[in-house]
Design a protein around this nucleic acid. Structure first.
Lengths: 203, 203, 203, 203
DNA sequence: TATGAATGAGATTTCATTCAT
DNA sequence: AATGAATGAAATCTCATTCAT
């Protein structure tokens, strides 16, 4: 990569970081592009060299952050001291890891969620961003390697993601109807039931 | 009610309606207060007599509309040609009714949802707005009158609302992973499983 | 005075007091008529029953407060334990008394001054408001009773008032070029010189 | 200076001039920023690029205009056909020059004065704006070069400025107690007395 | 590429004043 | 006399976007 390209990438990254910090601090509506470029230390015009507008950078940011969450969860799964076996345990492990991360990073939860958690998660999981790590492929692989056979895998994943995302969001943020730690057993029971209902039979 | 009070109520209502129509047509960000008052045919200052700002009227609107959805669903349930029995069937009836309403009113879905569906639904269901119709009471009554006994009723309702709200929203709007009509059976199966998992035994 | 008239006077007084407190607290520009009536506990329309606008009430307030200052100073002069004799000593006594009062009431100083101290003082002294206590008359009497004869009495009073008002204002407020207590000897020396320069001869 | 910087300076100047003309014509309260930018032929946002708000530009304007007055007076003093000698004559020359200027420019007098002449004059004389021509230095030099020695020079200048500013303002504007031309002898006599009272002895 | 001055539409908000009750 | 809802002009200020350098 040439020095110019490097510089270009650095500028973009700086804008990315500035935007993220401002978005989670002040919210999107109250963050002006001038705030972003000021914090990034670049000129206003430069912003428009890399992003279309505020919502462009926001969307890319959400996708990026969601990606990171899943990547970290998958990594933890793969490097767990004791191997986690069974699709249900594996999915719950991932959900649990993400929840635990977000509990410690409420601003991130707020940022992602306020901007339609579910859409974002889904985009990562089901449709989108098949760039570096293809999570959809990863999930399919997990499904295939399981001892059970599954029907309507897409539907299953979708249902779980929606439930966990939505219920998790509210439970973490508002401790309603229960604080997340107390709600987890219920959530995971439901996840198991959903998975189970998609099983055909042991292979 | 004096003539003045009557007039006041009418003004507020007009503003309410104008705001709603603009919000679902152009979106909140693109709706200016001047748009609202212009459409309502009142002076700009009048808006500030009744609402703090754009977000104040939006929140009140969301609560109001969500309320209406539930009220209509409950009414339909109570006046169904053939009585619907069993908590699971009743809840699914309500969900189904709301989904069908929103399918025909995508702008409303978008409006409510973009502004945190779940939070809004939950506020109606679990905590909030115990004004006219107390839905929480209604649900409790439905639970009590069922032939089964339930544990953790709050958790059960919360889980169902989150799942149905979030999954329904995406399925209706994006037909992903399936169009809503095809997704419904899966959704309702999950709802039934969740209900079932909270049952203790027949009374 | 009938009950109605009494009530009327009370309303006006309340508005007066509210305005004064707001003016010295927030400044005139930032004080809205709605602030005044709110604090006074009367309706907005009532304000217009008694005053033309914000500046009307302000002017009346300044005249009133300036009047009070002089009245109090004159009273102190007349009731001093040891009689003060000589026009120079008497005028300095009055100036001193007013300065000491304002030092303890900076908001009042600010209010009067920001709105043209000198004009206000002058209006009281020379031209205006010959209502209850006619200060001009009082000063003339002080001049006549002195053992000296004076030329151009108006000019003398004017010069002294302008000097004391302007220099006093700045010295009290900004301690520049000296704090008022240290500036006083210089000020009073100048006042004596001015008086002296208007003397013709002992009568 | 680049083309951009040149342009910037020109814009600021244009705003400055527009504001000044409006302020002295309509008064500050009645001058809107939109008036200023309209007259200057620039966009509204441009104003905020150079000034914080209306009061910012006003303060800078007052300082500027006051500066000009003194500069012109000093220039006249230095280029007088017959050299003016003696501190008293020099100070009176300056005061006289400023008074004569203001007599011909009542709007300027009003503008400066309404916003606390004295404060402004003082800021130029005693403390402030030590930029181009340092008037304080100039006065000190005048004092040093005099044949007399002086005590408490700051106090002397302050007293004179306050007296001349305040009395001059009222006399010019209201012809009270006398028109300025008739009042001048009295004023200058007082000034001489004040100067004299600070003299120690001929050096 | 990068800059940042300039733009100017438009958003929000205030508030003196009126007038029907 | 008193009220206070309604007005709506006008004020301030923001900010996304452009474009000459």
């Amino acid at each position: 990569m040439g020095k110019v390209d490097e510089n270009k990438k650095k500028k973009k990254e700086t804008l990315f970081n500035s935007a993220y910090e401002l978005f989670i601090t002040k919210g999107i509506n109250s963050t002006a592009i001038s705030d972003i470029v000021e914090r990034a230390g670049v000129a206003k015009g430069t912003f428009y060299l890399y992003f279309k507008d505020k919502y462009d950078i926001r969307n890319k940011l959400i996708a990026h952050k969601t990606h990171e969450l899943f990547r970290a969860a998958k990594l933890a799964l793969d490097t767990a001291p004791e191997p986690v076996t069974g699709l249900d345990e594996q999915l719950i492990f991932i959900i649990d890891h993400i929840i635990d991360t977000l509990v410690l990073n409420i601003p991130l939860l707020n940022f992602i969620s306020k901007n339609l958690v579910m859409g974002a998660l889904r985009s990562v999981l089901l449709t989108g961003e098949r760039t570096d790590n293809d999570f959809y492929e990863i999930f399919l692989k997990m499904v295939l390697e399981d001892t059970y056979e599954y029907l309507d895998v897409d539907v299953m994943l979708f249902t779980i993601v929606e439930l966990a995302g939505s219920a998790g969001y509210n439970s973490i943020l508002y401790s309603e109807p229960l604080p997340i730690e107390q709600y987890k057993p219920f959530l995971y029971r439901s996840v198991r039931l959903i998975i189970d209902s998609h099983r055909v039979r042991p292979v």
